[in-house]
Design a protein around this nucleic acid. Structure first.
Lengths: 337, 337
DNA sequence: CCGAGAGGTGTGATCGCTAACATCATCGGT
DNA sequence: ACCGATGATGTTAGCGATCACACCTCTCGG
């Protein structure tokens, strides 16, 4: 062993090699203006030569700020949240922030509070909470006011910074598409009632029906799973007057598709179906599913933007951004026979 | 404002309130033995009263260690990686570690090296790399020897700590199941050839055929997408001698299912299909898919265990763990007609 | 030719914690 | 009654960065 366990180089080591003080090294690192170009180069060279890497802990200690963003999300493999997270990490990485995630099994107030606490322990610079239902949104009351916070898919009624997909607009478009294709009315298989996403989709669906004075059938309540969609589909398949179904997500739609198939009701010939999310496999359902595609990458970008705004400004805002989804037409919709 | 921006309480504040020295507070926090029970309680009370929360940056600065684990994974929403990550975070959280993720768009050496660098900047205590293909595995050569590292789904040939699902065993079981059902042979739609998972599944499939001296048809190469499965399925559907297909994952199987359907070949009556992964929707495909289910939670637990072993021991190991998947029988397999 | 201002650089204190050592009772054994 | 071990606590010195400020060296207007 050359040295004592070969401690990695610190700022003073760089300073010594470059023949300057550690403070000058710090200035170079932080792009302070008052450094001679020549000095700057010398320091840069020394940094490179030593393979110096600033110690974030030391910096965090003195500045009181970290370069960490915490994300609280449900412990789920749902397509929406997963892609969102994925896109968010990418955006954050580009902005020089690391992302620490605190998954939570159930979206109740207690679990979320615990996850938030864990992140506060880490002294995160800001927090993103994916709070798609009421109990999750409630938990946000516990987040201290000073901490920059952005909610995703949260309560539209609440006054926190919020980024969401415009659920209602997407549902409206989907429903209108079915109506314009010639259906008298459209049935709706909804996600869990306490999810804002589901509620927004119900709203948009209703608005579209109202707009043309179509009859509004009762909402078929379900959760987000294919199993629930299948169950709902079994019921709908038995009702001959059902010719068009708008499912609150693609997995529900998949279940509906299978129930229709088993019952001998052909899609789209006898029944048209539209989903929501555009999961990658949707194009390979039987038949390929017409669905609504939210732009998760855009949501992620907006979220990060809003958060960094707060982080740099040092105060909370209540701005909100809404991302409009688009309808993707495939082969699960047709003129009723 | 009461104080100057109300700095949060530090160890000395707790010490003052409890009437002890900050060092004693430190001892209480770290469960050192030599503290009187009474003192311990007094300190605990003071901590609670002030809402004191230890500053991790300060601790990291002096100990040189963080409570952070870095995970490098592909920027994907594939079901397998997503559930793995999810399970891993949960396990790590319980062990008191935070998880910082560095997603990577493509699994080439450069991107992975960059992600590893970002994590080293953070001074992570250990690193988990999901390195399912050759180029990713190559990148691991750049990881410095001192850093605890566990590879998931990595190269079975390489000598790093590794946790994998026993792909070959799963594929063997799936193929054998088809053979035992009465099929002469089994065709295979494979994932990308440079993925170890795909390669392992090919191997297991081949072994099962060899074991009963069945003819080994050519491998149909694809990627992991439903689109590729569909394409492969279109070809297979045209060949009357194909009565059984083992697809390398569920999405491929979905594509195959749809191609068969379009071509009028009934599953399972005319053709049997088996997938791999058991995505949650697999039970609602048409027909419900027989598939192989890996236990991602177990992989996550083993991974964490192996990593923490290295972190506490302070040295790298080359142990490896293998998780056996199980066959889930549904309705996509039947006796050939 | 002098003094003000600005640019470039160095010095020390400090952030909140842990490690190492110092101190001071208390206690059992001879 | 003395001594060394042991337990409980305090004191001091950093870890590696940033910040505030001091210091020097120019330039330039009056």
């Amino acid at each position: 062993m050359d040295q004592k366990t070969q401690r990695d180089p610190a700022m003073t080591d760089v300073a010594r090699l470059a023949g300057v003080s550690h403070q000058t090294v710090s200035r170079v690192l932080n792009d302070h203006p008052n450094v001679r170009e020549q000095t700057r180069l010398r320091v840069r060279a020394a940094i490179k030569e030593l393979g110096y890497r600033p110690n974030r802990a030391a910096r965090a200690l003195v500045t009181g700020k970290t370069q960490l963003i915490g994300v609280v999300a449900q412990n789920s493999t749902l397509y929406g949240p997963a892609s969102l997270l994925s896109a968010f990490e990418e955006a954050a990485g580009e902005a020089g922030f690391a992302v620490s995630i605190g998954r939570v099994k159930v979206l109740d107030r207690e679990s979320i509070a615990a996850a938030v606490e864990r992140h506060r322990d880490q002294r995160v610079a800001g927090l993103v909470v994916i709070a798609p239902n009421a109990s999750a949104a409630d938990a946000l009351a516990d987040v201290p006011a000073g901490l920059p916070l952005v909610t995703v898919d949260g309560d539209p009624e609440r006054t926190t910074a919020l980024v969401t997909v415009d659920q209602a607009a997407g549902a409206f478009e989907a429903t209108t598409h079915l109506l314009e294709t010639g259906h008298q009315t459209v049935w709706h298989v909804s996600g869990p009632q306490d999810w804002f996403d589901a509620a927004g989709r119900v709203q948009g669906w209703k608005r579209a029906l109202d707009a043309v004075n179509a009859e509004v059938p009762p909402v078929v309540a379900a959760d987000w799973s294919a199993a629930a969609g299948y169950k709902a589909g079994q019921m709908l398949a038995r009702m001959p007057e059902v010719t068009a179904v708008f499912a609150s997500n693609d997995h529900l739609a998949l279940g509906v598709l299978r129930a229709m198939h088993e019952r001998g009701r052909r899609v789209p010939h006898d029944v048209s179906v539209v989903g929501f999310d555009d999961v990658p496999e949707a194009a390979y359902f039987i038949p390929p599913l017409t669905t609504v595609r939210p732009d998760f990458a855009a949501v992620a970008r907006e979220t990060l933007g809003l958060l960094l705004e707060q982080v740099t400004a040092g105060e909370s805002t209540t701005s909100r951004r809404t991302i409009a989804p688009v309808l993707v037409r495939r082969e699960s919709v047709a003129f009723p026979s």
